[in-house]
């Protein structure tokens, strides 16, 4: 059956909208996507309702892992600096914890949202709904960063299609890489179609990060037949810890610091990969 642009136009409608999310509606969960021009086409039916949503990047971060949470929050902000619409979604149980600042729209429009999820399914569904809603105002694309409690992975079956892109943050020490590999086994078992990336943090040189990445990539390839996508390296310098204590973005407080440069570089990689998912 011949098609024309109208059949794919719905993909790009968000690009035409100029509005930005307001604090008033920031925490509302979205309604299912609608086709204002009439019933969905065959094309739309086949593509499903998640094709125009922002990509979701799942980050396994422990409940007391303040450093990784701070890196994730700063990555979201740096991605926003590049022009992306970014939302950081975390379970409601995180509210009031030292992991995050106050919810709502923060620096550079980066938004922190707590969702009332109690398991992996409801967490993914909440993130997917937010991703769908935010796509409507994301003129230049965006990313939903999702804090996943690691203990939820493997506990219950997770919906396969909602979240398939994950980023591991691992230090370069042998024991950290070993733990990350062990977690990758669980992740791949639960998400056979997952695309898994790694940012090596806590390193003092590029060579150290490269070596750590290549070691883990080789192990994952050999043991899990799973490619590991590199997302560069992050630096844990004094600025990071100061920023954590002050709950201030590193890129704004210390824009010339190595930590800020590294965050900007990783954010660029994330944003580029997110853009490559714009059509689903």
């Amino acid at each position: 059956m011949p098609r024309d642009l109208a059949d794919v136009l719905h993909y790009f409608l968000p690009e035409l909208e100029e509005s930005t999310p307001s604090p008033e509606n920031a925490s509302e969960l979205p309604a299912p996507s609608a086709n204002p021009s009439g019933p969905p086409t065959d094309f739309q039916r086949r593509r499903g309702s998640h094709s125009s949503a922002l990509p979701i990047l799942g980050l396994p971060i422990g409940t007391q892992d303040v450093v990784r949470a701070a890196l994730a929050w700063n990555l979201a902000i740096e991605t926003a600096r590049l022009g992306a619409a970014t939302v950081l979604v975390a379970p409601e149980s995180d509210r009031g914890s030292p992991l995050w600042p106050e919810p709502g729209i923060g620096p550079l429009g980066c938004e922190l949202v707590f969702c009332p999820a109690k398991d992996i399914t409801s967490l993914y569904e909440a993130a997917a709904e937010i991703a769908l809603r935010r796509a409507g105002s994301a003129k230049r694309g965006g990313v939903v960063f999702l804090r996943i409690p690691p203990e939820w992975i493997g506990r219950d079956a997770a919906p396969q299609s909602l979240v398939r892109w994950f980023l591991f943050l691992s230090a370069a020490r042998h024991e950290d890489l070993r733990d990350t590999l062990a977690f990758a086994r669980k992740m791949v078992s639960q998400h056979p179609d997952a695309e898994i990336g790694l940012s090596v943090h806590g390193v003092s040189s590029i060579a150290e990060a490269r070596k750590a990445y290549e070691s883990l990539a080789k192990s994952m390839r050999h043991e899990l037949s799973q490619d590991l996508v590199s997302y560069g390296l992050l630096v844990d310098d004094l600025h990071v810890y100061r920023a954590i204590a002050a709950q201030r973005p590193i890129g704004l407080a210390h824009p010339q610091s190595p930590a800020a440069r590294a965050l900007g570089d990783v954010a660029r990689l994330i944003y580029e990969d997110a853009r490559s998912r714009v059509l689903g």
Binding site: R210, R221, D227, S230, Y231, G232, L269
Partner: peptide, 8 residues
């Protein structure tokens, strides 16, 4: 098959 990436 995997490649380390960084712009730093």
């Amino acid at each position: 098959s995997s490649t380390f990436r960084t712009g730093l």
